[in-house]
Design a protein around this nucleic acid. Structure first.
Length: 202
DNA sequence: CCCTGATTCGC
DNA sequence: GCGAATCAGG
């Protein structure tokens, strides 16, 4: 497969959409994520945030020099690189203005069956789910892949959204967080400390 | 282990 | 220009 205009465009679109290189590669087909990453770099659209203010490269010295297997000839010293990479990027506003019609809040119910090894780290004693976490959820749900039950895999977020009784029901489907059944955002609201809504008095 | 992007360098 | 191999990290 070669990088046709169409493929490059899809790449650009997906990349700026925040899709991972591997996802893009899968979508395109015929290429690996390495190919995608390589292309991304060649196209010069590495940083998606647009804001790449001179990282002031730490530059790791790494003094090792003799150890049986040099293997790597070491990188080029790179003479003089005036990092004057001023790139006037338009930066398309996030445009996160979606009404997000009150999420039906289908409680994940399942408390997850913990393998019995994780003692649950010290919880920050939060009564409610942090507003931040909730905000992140509603935000992420707009990017959800909206998978059907059968499309779920070991690595797709299984957080349900909507009412199962209606056609407006789907599963998040975003990449799960290692081990967990949900993506990062949903893990945030799925695993509550333990107090939560106790004194609901209503 | 799963995954991410970054980099190098022979092709 | 391309991308596998590798590196570095979560």
């Amino acid at each position: 497969m070669s990088w046709t205009d169409e493929r490059v465009e899809l790449l650009k679109k997906m990349w700026s959409d925040g899709q991972s290189a591997s996802q893009i590669a899968k979508e395109l087909g015929g290429v690996t994520r390495n190919a995608v990453i390589g292309k991304v770099h060649r196209l010069g659209l590495s940083n998606r945030a647009g804001a790449a203010p001179a990282p002031a490269e730490p530059v790791k010295p790494k003094p090792e020099a003799a150890k049986a297997k040099p293997s790597r000839p070491a990188a080029q010293p790179k003479p003089a690189e005036p990092e004057t990479r001023a790139e006037p990027k338009p930066e398309p506003a996030p445009a996160a203005e979606a009404p997000a019609a009150a999420t039906p809040a289908v409680s994940p119910a399942r408390k997850q069956i913990i393998p019995a090894g994780q003692p649950l780290p010290p919880q920050p004693s939060t009564n409610e789910i942090s507003p931040e976490a909730l905000a992140k959820v509603s935000e992420v749900e707009k990017k959800a892949k909206k998978l059907t039950l059968m499309e779920l895999t070991e690595r797709t977020c299984k957080w349900p959204v909507g009412d199962p009784a209606t056609s407006d029901f789907w599963f998040c489907g975003l990449p799960v967080q290692q081990g967990k059944p949900y993506c990062e955002a949903h893990v945030g609201v799925a695993f509550q400390p333990m107090s939560s809504r106790r004194d609901r008095r209503r």
